[in-house]
Design a binder for these strands. Sequence first.
DNA 1: ATTACTAGCCGTCGAGTAT
DNA 2: TATACTCGACGGCTAGTAA
Lengths: 221, 221
Amino acid sequence: MKKFEAIYMLSEIAMRDGIYRYLTIKTGVFGREIGFSQQSTSRKLNELYSQGLIDKVVLIRGLKVKITKKGIDYLMDEIKKMGLIGEKIRRIIIEGSVTSGMGEGTYYMSREGYIRQFMSFFGERPYPGTLNILLDNEMGEIISFLKSNYRYRLNGFREMERTFGDVILHRATLNGHPCFIIFPERGHYENVVEIVSSENLRNKFSLKDGDRVKLEVFPYD
Amino acid sequence: MKKFEAIYMLSEIAMRDGIYRYLTIKTGVFGREIGFSQQSTSRKLNELYSQGLIDKVVLIRGLKVKITKKGIDYLMDEIKKMGLIGEKIRRIIIEGSVTSGMGEGTYYMSREGYIRQFMSFFGERPYPGTLNILLDNEMGEIISFLKSNYRYRLNGFREMERTFGDVILHRATLNGHPCFIIFPERGHYENVVEIVSSENLRNKFSLKDGDRVKLEVFPYD
DNA sequence: ATTACTAGCCGTCGAGTAT
DNA sequence: TATACTCGACGGCTAGTAA
């Protein structure tokens, strides 16, 4: 049996609480639930047993199984790996340096039309200005992912004859400090991103143009 | 392709950072790394592609792959499931009620031979007494697991003609408050467990005999 | 009733190879 | 040089059935 198949079997047992106590099952019913025939289930459980990954006792009708210490360790290894992948998915790391940019974001983030929506999401008032970060390398793929897969979006509006478009927003941290990264929904890729926070980040961290910063973006938070 | 096999493939791509950016691979090399032939790897990647789980571009030599949004969601679901199983493994929940017990633990936990070892593990001095909890149901399987799979053990010693045996110890919480659960290594199962803490838990929580408590034990912490 | 063996079938694997 | 198709071989799957 392939490793990932054993992990699958163990995780199905674990989900049914067969970790510290015996779980009573019937190969037919359990098999149907996990997508195998009665016979295959029987064979696979015996295989797990002979590998020392589960304890198994045959009862008059049915059997009881329990994951062994070895099985738990085996499963735990895989859970840790999956946890690491989860981290990679949840936390996108971007590095770059502070730049002055064109100050467009500042004009945007002082519009009440955006501020009201921002506050309804996060309960805090954004500092009316953005910090611009010049990205190190070609980050087009990541930026386009962040533009199309978002949780927060500020709807556009018209104000004084001018149209303000939709804005995509992600939670992030700048050198560990919570903030937000924003993108205009329309517009092509630029290697500069804008950061919004309730504070003036440039002053708070005494940032000068060219200073290195590490951004972590959390598209699922 | 079975679901768990697809998850395996996706996780191998994810580990190599094929999440937000394209990952350049060769079916032969990648296949060898993940345990399949060049041909099977090619076939499986095409299958993932036709299911919309990855993007794939054939290059002059090799190909580049990237997990799609659908693929990330698919993988995330599984990661969450694994996380839940991890929680089940890490945190064993035991319920019961406060009882007076026989006061044996109090005598034990005032021996300097144990206290010194306890302090070297946890840096705090245990209150010289134990709180006894009468377990609700038959918990023999769980208790025997905790007795044989432990991280902390206080070695026994001789003192004044009396022998003190080895003691197994686990981190735990009582109604959310950090504490420790202890078992004599020798001796058969009893449905009473003893709790040690740096404070007098009975006073701190105004516990009377019969009061319901929820214990969470963390065998991996 | 339910587990698990046997036998035959079916699908997956990978060597060979076209592109 | 690579990917990916074809096809023969092998292994795993399940129906039938013994225990």
